[in-house]
Design a binder for these strands. Structure first.
Lengths: 214, 214
DNA sequence: GCAACAATAAAACGAACGTTCAATTAATTC
DNA sequence: GAATTAATTGAACGTTCGTTTTATTGTTGC
């Protein structure tokens, strides 16, 4: 046999991306074979090579698009105002929303870095570094303005990022908690972490509405 | 050929454990072959099967021993006094010290869970759960005593654990920072995170205004 | 020094891997 | 409706995988 009726390159490629994200997130890159992936797409393994020259190319594409999407989401959510507290809140909220909405690609991008060639690894790390730099900048400005307590900008940035990325490890949508509630709680923890908390005074009222980002 | 001069089962098994931790931490379980592992040990692949019946048995052993070691380290470090603040500090400090000292087994235990059979996975998760329960207990008691601000015990425990485990992602010993300094900084962040910070009163160096956004 | 045991090498097993290639058919273009 | 292009199949390639089997040698106890 050969070309099947109703076959469509665009759809096959999109389905391959999606299936790859799901499979690799659950089983790991090395544990997913091209045949298994093809089976999920409903196609023979050889057909995948029309869209991705190698298995590693596929992985790299998924990771790059994840990182670019993250950067774009932040640029869209970043507040115009220079207020560090507002920017920190926007960063945390955007980060959590983005990662919860893309659990699979987050897992792939965080866990499968070692399967990339040295060259591609450094490309992904560069994107990640540029994103993390945004948070460091916020922390630095907040500390300099006397709004935040930051012993070490780099350490604090890593601590916050690992804390808020960790949401996807345990959080499953459509349970007792909504993304909004989780983001709100993590936002409070982040604020206290950097000493920017006003919760002690306003705690009974639950007031954090003014920090909402888009 | 067969048995080599000076061969010693105990040493071979220990060397296999160590090499496996290092290789799996760097390359991932699926990417490490029994032949590569054997090569690192200085032996043929078949020899490894004298000590570990299957590759997965080896992985499971490494993980189980890591989790048991973590539990034991905490039991040794746990303060006798019931003071929640002191117990929280001891937990954070022990956790960081333990994980920094065992980066490789931490990576393996955190990243390779999906390579375990369902039965063994649940054994490891049970050990992990029992360890995390200790932190939840501390948080709950601290909150009930009015010492901590804890919106949600489970979420706060996950946030703290992910934050302090994340140290091993970026921290490399023998650099500009010592384990003591890192642990101290993370301890401060953790205290503020749960609102158990006394820094506002004690820290006159860094004046930080009680700000109000909006 | 001889039997029992411990530790390994060497070779082989079938299965699965990523990838390539030629053939074939569906869709599109003119 | 013929020519062209797009999409896929099915078979095959060489390699590597985890594991088993068998034979062989070092070590230990008597």
């Amino acid at each position: 046999m050969a070309r099947t009726t109703g076959s469509d390159g665009g759809r096959t490629e999109a389905a391959t991306r999606e299936a790859a994200l799901s499979l690799i997130a659950r089983q790991g890159y090395e544990a997913v074979s091209m045949r298994q992936l093809a089976g999920e797409v409903g196609v023979q393994a050889a057909a995948l090579y029309r869209y991705f020259p190698t298995k590693e190319d596929l992985l790299f594409t998924l990771m790059r698009e994840h990182m670019e999407g993250l950067q774009q989401a932040w640029e869209a959510a970043r507040p115009a105002a220079p207020d560090p507290a507002a920017r920190l809140s926007a960063f945390v909220e955007n980060h959590i929303r983005f990662h919860v909405a893309r659990r699979h690609s987050t897992h792939v991008s965080n866990m499968e870095l070692r399967s990339l060639s040295k060259d591609r690894l450094s490309q992904i790390l560069r994107l990640r570094g540029s994103y993390e730099k945004e948070l460091r900048q916020i922390l630095r400005e907040g500390a300099e303005a006397g709004l935040f307590i930051v012993d070490d900008v780099g350490m604090t940035a890593m601590a916050i990022i690992q804390m808020i990325t960790g949401v996807i490890v345990w959080f499953r949508p459509d349970e007792r908690l909504s993304v909004e509630e989780v983001a709100e709680t993590y936002l409070s923890m982040t604020r206290r972490l950097v000493g920017a908390d006003d919760a002690r005074e306003k705690r009974n009222v639950r007031p954090h509405a003014e920090f909402r980002a888009g």
